[in-house]
Design a protein around this nucleic acid. Structure first.
Lengths: 141, 141
DNA sequence: GCCTGTCAATCAGTGAAGCTGACGATTTAT
DNA sequence: ATAAATCGTCAGCTTCACTGATTGACAGGC
């Protein structure tokens, strides 16, 4: 299990590394692209990242010009972290395809049917537990 | 995937934590129990642990009286790290059962058939790749 | 018997990564 | 208006593994 995850992480990491990104960056970019501008807290808590770590993640993305900090007019304590047009373009046309490639690479030993099966099993393994919340939206593969 | 692994690690970690152990300790203890006394290098390289990290792992296990350092008579540079009788007893009668429980807990969402299926898929995912070596012995679940 | 090279274990120091706790700025509640 | 809570930030701490160097032990050439 841990070995599989190590491979997974390493494959994804080297997929985004050419763009100067880490996998956390990809998660954040994707979250903004699909859910719209969000505060750092939202981005952090939704994806299990620490709030203080989020600062440096956004710092990096902003430095790369992929993201911009705007104040949320409804609550000026919060930012509204949004993608720049370059950020959106890079994410959609370059990074996302690279990630799909990487995922394909990771699942290389499997046939299409097996991929779906594995995905379903993994999903159940994570979300189908009695104790805590089993309601969550789509995230990592 | 990463979420599943996080759960896995956390469940295993809290399974051995009551004994004052970390998962690395369990790996090492099991390795010695099944393969016999070994040098620290062997233990380290076999399981992807750094050699210098191994020092402190064995330190801890020795401090708990579960393991003892003896010199390898054939090569006195090396240790022959062996289980004490307490170590072996604790591992076999307490820790290993706790780990099985934890694994059972982890796989709770699955039926017996699904467990076997998932295990097989995971195994293939890790070892059935064209590039590097696909020969390895049994390790983590 | 030595001299050189290699390997096992150890240790100090380094560096990455995340987290805690505190702070200013702002919002919300009483 | 005052108090409590929230967002982003930063300094400092902890954890963890790794690098490089040191000591003791083996192996081979001569």
């Amino acid at each position: 299990m841990s070995k599989a995850n190590d491979m997974f992480v390493q494959i994804l990491e080297s997929a985004v590394e050419p763009f100067g990104l880490r996998s956390k960056d990809f998660i954040v970019l994707t979250a903004i692209d699909t859910m719209g501008p969000q505060s750092q807290q939202q981005l952090a808590s939704t994806h299990g990242i620490d709030r203080t770590t989020m600062v440096s993640v956004v710092d990096g993305l902003e430095r790369l010009g992929l993201v911009q900090r705007a104040r949320n007019p409804d609550d000026r304590r919060k930012y509204a972290i949004g993608l720049t047009s370059e950020g959106q373009a890079l994410l959609r046309h370059k990074v996302a395809p690279a990630m799909l490639d990487a995922l394909d690479n990771f699942l290389a030993p499997f046939s299409p049917d097996e991929r779906e099966l594995f995905n379903k099993l993994l999903w159940r393994l994570v979300y189908e537990r009695d104790s805590p919340g089993e309601d969550e939206a789509g995230e990592r593969a």
